[in-house]
Design a protein around this nucleic acid. Sequence first.
RNA 1: CGCGGGGUGGAGCAGUCUGGUAGCUCGUUGGGCUCAUAACCCAAAGGUCCCGGGUUCAAAUCCCGGCCCCGCAA
Length: 321
Amino acid sequence: MGTPEFAVPSLAKLVQDGHEVAAVFTQPDKPAGRGKHLQAPPVKAFALERGIAVHQPARIKTNEEVRAVFQSIAPDACVVAAYGKILPEWLLQIPRLGCINVHASLLPKYRGAAPINWAIANGERETGITIMQMDAGLDTGPMLAQRAIEIGEDETAPELSARLAEVGAELLSETLLLVERGEIEPVPQKNDEATYAPMLKREDGLIDWQMSAREIANRVRAFQPWPGTYTIFRGVRLMLWRARAASTLTLDGIKNVEPATIILIDKTSLTIACSGSSALRIEEVQIEGKRRMNARDFINGARLNVGDRIADSLFGDQQSG
RNA sequence: CGCGGGGUGGAGCAGUCUGGUAGCUCGUUGGGCUCAUAACCCAAAGGUCCCGGGUUCAAAUCCCGGCCCCGCAA
């Protein structure tokens, strides 16, 4: 059971390892893109290519059909990776070996829907994969295996997600083998150390220029590809695609500049004052309705000068639509 | 037919409402200045104004049709 790109390597690994994948459950196709076509989740596309049966129930908990399918399959195990739905108690109890989840954090940290994004947003240097036995709670089940990896200094969420997906597939493969042999003792999570990584909301991407440059830069990396990190500039959304905290050398004599003000323009970037005497060096942006462009092109087109403001307000709250 | 923005020398944009000389910031090329420079000064090259019709003395601009890019929404 899984839905996005993150889940594909794990499914591929299951197939490659010779496991009999009786069925794949994934989210229903959804209208996407500019027109309104239905779009198949990545996991569905992969499964169909391999000739695996695909089920896309809108609801599970009270769905008798799903229940019947599940009971007739009577799987040894159910593997879940970023499925995007809550699994009801009755389903959790059907597989002999339980429901095994591939979660992209070092549990109990970052339980929830967006562990990768929030780990980067919070400036973590390290995250990882936890393989766990699912229970009725949200990512609260006992852990079967865990593997940590470093987060790159400039690594974005899609990049980290791709790496974690591979690590997850690998660790899943190893763990499943041990589970089949009954050689793993599940380790309960320390609930008092748990933190949550809630699903991202559009507003999470709105820049608060009262934050430090480092915090903003982290969010720029973290909230890709959605909701992005943006401010409201001349009445439209201005997305920041690449930015980093400016070196302290750049900061001389800017102590009293109001946040969101341009303090430096050079060949490839523009530097914006943030709070706490920090500054954000912006290298790639995108204006609403336009393509992504490097900072130089943006400066040329928007005719920016030092002293101009990059945000209509510090919070962008005048957008309120 | 979900809503909206856009397509103008190589890049990013203005000009379009109120038809009439192709503009700005860069880049490129040549020259100059300088110990030197991606800095500065001077000069030059480079455009079917997305495509096809229509209106008009005249269309980047107005009207009709089409293609393509992007944001929102989901």
